[in-house]
């Protein structure tokens, strides 16, 4: 338990950032109909499986349609 407490200052901000990114990404996926590649289902799966940052970043780099 002490071990975890020692790392809390790292874990809490990382979790907050992760959740913000996840919410923004899912909001973006569900409010857009078309994507550069892939479908809505694919991107939701990628975002949730890779929610430790890599999934949402992949979506914004590869999947998001240019306006």
């Amino acid at each position: 338990m002490d071990k975890i407490r020692e790392y809390l200052p790292f874990i809490i901000p990382l979790v907050i950032v992760e959740i913000i990114l996840l919410v923004v990404t899912l909001h973006h996926i569900f409010t857009h109909e078309n994507y550069k590649r892939g479908s809505r289902l694919l991107w939701v799966i990628v975002t949730i499986i890779g929610m430790e940052f890599i999934g949402p970043i992949l979506y914004f780099v590869l999947g998001k349609e240019d306006e």
Binding site: E6, Y7, F10, P13, L14, V17, I20, L21, V24, H28, F53, P56, I57, F60, V61, K64, D66, E67
Partner: peptide, 25 residues
């Protein structure tokens, strides 16, 4: 701002900022 690039970049750099001391620790 609208293309979410700022958000993605900001989060990447925040992660790096936190990870540097975390890895050392």
């Amino acid at each position: 701002l609208r293309s979410n690039k700022v958000l993605v970049l900001g989060i990447i750099f925040i992660i790096f900022g936190i990870m540097n001391p975390a890895i050392a620790k």
